[in-house]
Structure formats: C-alpha cells, structure tokens
C-alpha cells in the first residue's frame, strides 16, 4: 500500500518536474496589452547566455514571457460559452497602424468642382414640399413632382409669339427628354473623367441661330464625316484652311542636328532668292526717268571726265537688267 502511494507520488513529482512553474520572476514588470494580446519585455537580455546558448535562451525567454501574458489573461473575467472558457479582453492600448490605405475621396463631378471654385454651397432640398394647390405634400423631384406637372397638364397655354399650330405638349415632352439625356451624358462624362478615361466631346449640338464660328465648325465636322475621314472631300473655291482643328503643333527638337537645321535655313534662303525680284514698276519707271534726265544733262554739258565711269556703270547695269528681266527699251544709263 505504501509502495503504491509512493509510486503515485513519484509519478506525480515526475510529471510536475516536466512542467515549468507558472511563477515567473522579472526584474522589471512586462508591459502587457491584453487587448492586443501583446507583451513587451523591457528587461535587458543576458549577453553571456545569449552568446553561449542562443536558441535555448531565447526559447526560454519567450516561454516565460508568454506565461506572464497567459497569467494576465487568467486574471481577466472569464465566462463559459458552449463549454469553452472565454476571457473577455479589454480595449487595446497600443495603437496599431491601419492595414489598408485611407480610402481616396470620391472624385468630384464637374459641377462640384465648379461650385467649389465659385464658393457655391448646396442647400439640402427636402424630399417633399408642400403644395398649396392640392393641399398636400408632393415629392420635390421625380414621379408626381411639380417638375413634371407640365407633362400631366390637360391643357397648355400657347405663348404669344409662338406658332399656334406648334404642339406644346410635344415640345414640353421633348424638352424634358433632352434635359434627361443631357443629365445622363454629364453623368457618364463625370464617370469617364473620374476613371481617367478619355472624355469624348459632345460634338456639335444643333442650335436655332448658329454663329459664324458654329457654322465653320459644323462645316469642318461635316467634311470629315465621311468613310475616308474627309480625305477625298473637295473644298469650296476660295475656302480658307481651317484653323485649330485639334491638330497638335509639332516642333523640331531644340537640340537636334544643327547642320540639318542650318541647311534647311539655307534652303529657305535660296528658295526666297529664286522667287525673288519681280519687276518693280515704280522702280523701273523712276530709273527710266532718271536716265532720261541724265541724258539731257549730258547733252547740255558734255564732260569728258565722266565718260569712263558712265561706261562702267552701263556695263554693270546691263548685267543686272538681264538677270532681272526688267522691261524697258532703248538706251539705259546709270550714274555711279
């Protein structure tokens, strides 16, 4: 009997010795944040042990600290849920950074941008407004709202300056459809702009009184609206080339091939020289008059000294004249 007791005690002692104590001593208390199940050990590491038995030391340190954390958890109020003991964690103390980035603000619509720029503040509209006529509340917009009254009217007034045979009901209905379409278009464009897609232009909307600018735009658009994108569209006689057709200007690179630039400029110069002097009528006439005058002077008083220089200038003049192809008959004389 005594043997049995001893053996049991021994086994218990052995079992006991396998487990370490739940009592852990630390010089400085651990910083425990039970809400996050986080324990921070401010005690310095034992440098000697760390060097000799690194892994064992670290494992034992981790075990002790975990034990302390679990001790703390056991101090918390516990309850039993479906046969499991559950501790109720307090609110976390440590502030952790958020996992995901802060959501970006919703992209503004065109109107919102404009309103912000101009400082326009939106007044919140009530969903329903009191209607004095029918003594009841009616929706501000949408089905059965006053906005749509015009469409539900059984009779409509014809404006004074309007065509009496014009369908006012049809007109109102059409205006409404256009408003809705415009709104839808703007909504789509807002979405397109928000998702950084290319926002398509509206093109040209028909107007009653198109301006000159509007017409010229319409003309260019119409010319381009063929299967060949206007490649074979004939232009009218004396039609001016269209400005600002959305073609981007392209310039030569600033620091490019300098020799090429130079040769291009020289090319332009030579072209200009070729196109060059047409007959300047006034100039030719003046020259002619001058020559006549000089001839008169010469006949009046013959000066032998000047004869040489005159001959020279004649030669030069003739050379020049043939080049220019300037008209004029008879003798030509210049003066140096």
């Amino acid at each position: 009997m005594a043997d049995l007791v001893e053996s049991v005690l021994q086994k218990a002692a052995e079992k006991e010795s396998k487990y370490k104590s739940i009592e852990v001593h630390k010089d400085i208390d651990l910083d425990i944040d039970a809400g996050n199940l986080l324990a921070v050990d401010p005690n310095p590491l034992d440098a000697k042990k760390l060097r000799e038995k690194r892994d064992e030391y670290l494992i034992s340190l981790a075990r002790d600290n975990t034990q302390l954390l679990i001790n703390r958890i056991w101090e918390l109020p516990v309850e039993r849920v479906e046969g499991t003991i559950v501790a109720k964690l307090p609110a976390p103390k440590t502030i952790l950074p958020r996992e995901k980035p802060i959501p970006k603000p919703k992209p503004e619509t065109k109107w919102q941008q404009y309103a912000k720029l101009k400082g326009i503040q939106n007044k919140k509209k009530a969903r329903k407004v009191w209607d004095d006529e029918i003594k009841d509340w009616r929706p501000t917009w949408g089905y059965q709202s006053r906005v749509n009254d015009e469409l539900n009217e059984w009779v409509l007034e014809v404006p004074a300056n309007a065509d009496p045979y014009e369908d006012q009901f049809g007109k109102a209905k059409k205006a409404k459809t256009e408003r809705v379409a415009k709104n839808e278009l703007q909504r789509m464009r807002n979405i397109a702009r928000a998702s950084k897609l290319k926002v398509p232009g509206v093109g040209l909307t028909p107007t009653d009184t198109p301006s000159k600018d509007h017409l010229s735009k319409a003309l260019t658009l119409a010319k381009k609206s063929t299967a060949s994108v206007g490649k074979f569209t004939d232009s009218l006689p004396k039609e001016k080339p269209v400005k600002n057709t959305g073609k981007k200007r392209k310039f030569e690179p600033n620091v490019g091939d300098m020799s090429k630039e130079k040769s291009a400029q020289l090319d332009i110069l030579s072209k200009m020289a070729k196109a060059g002097p047409t007959v300047n009528v006034t100039k030719a006439m003046k020259q002619h008059m001058l020559e006549e005058e000089q001839q008169r002077q010469k006949t009046n008083s013959e000066r032998p000294k000047k004869a040489k220089s005159i001959k020279k200038s004649i030669k030069r003049k003739q050379g020049k004249d043939t080049k220019r192809g300037g008209g004029g008959k008879g003798k030509r004389r210049g003066r140096k």
Binding site: F251, E252, P253, N254, G256, A264, Q265, M272
Partner: peptide, 11 residues
C-alpha cells in the same frame, strides 16, 4: 525655347 518653324523662318 524652340527652333523656328519653316513658316516663321520665312517671315
């Protein structure tokens, strides 16, 4: 800064 276009050069 950029080089002149052909038209500008001509003018």
């Amino acid at each position: 800064m950029r080089p002149l276009t052909e038209e500008e050069t001509k003018t």
